[in-house]
Amino acid sequence: MITIIAAAAENNALGKDNDLVWHLPDDFKRFKQLTTGHFIIMGRKTFESFPKPLPNRTHVVITRQTDYNPDGCIVVNSMEKALELAKDDPQPFIIGGGEIYKLGLPYCNKIELTRVHASFDADTFFPEIEEGKWTLIQSTHHPKDDKHKYDFTYLTYSRK
Rank of each mutant, 00 (worst) to 15 (best):
M1S: 03
M1L: 06
T3E: 09
I4G: 04
A6T: 11
A7E: 12
A13F: 15
L14I: 11
N18V: 06
V21W: 05
V21G: 02
H23Q: 15
L24T: 04
P25D: 05
F28I: 12
K29G: 07
F31T: 06
Q33R: 15
T35M: 11
T36S: 14
F39H: 13
K45F: 06
K45L: 08
T46Y: 12
S49K: 10
F50I: 06
K52D: 06
K52M: 10
N56Q: 14
H59I: 02
H59E: 04
V60C: 02
V61Q: 01
Q65I: 05
Q65F: 06
N69R: 11
D71H: 07
G72E: 06
S78Y: 11
L83A: 03
I94D: 06
I95G: 03
G98V: 12
E99F: 02
Y101V: 13
G104W: 03
Y107I: 02
C108M: 10
C108Y: 07
I111A: 11
E112V: 12
L113E: 08
L113F: 04
T114N: 04
H117G: 00
H117P: 03
S119F: 00
F120K: 14
D123T: 10
T124P: 01
F125P: 15
E128S: 09
K133R: 14
K133C: 08
W134A: 01
L136Y: 01
L136E: 12
L136K: 14
I137E: 05
I137Y: 02
Q138I: 00
Q138T: 09
S139M: 06
P143C: 10
K144M: 13
K144H: 12
D146K: 15
Y150E: 14
D151K: 11
S158M: 12
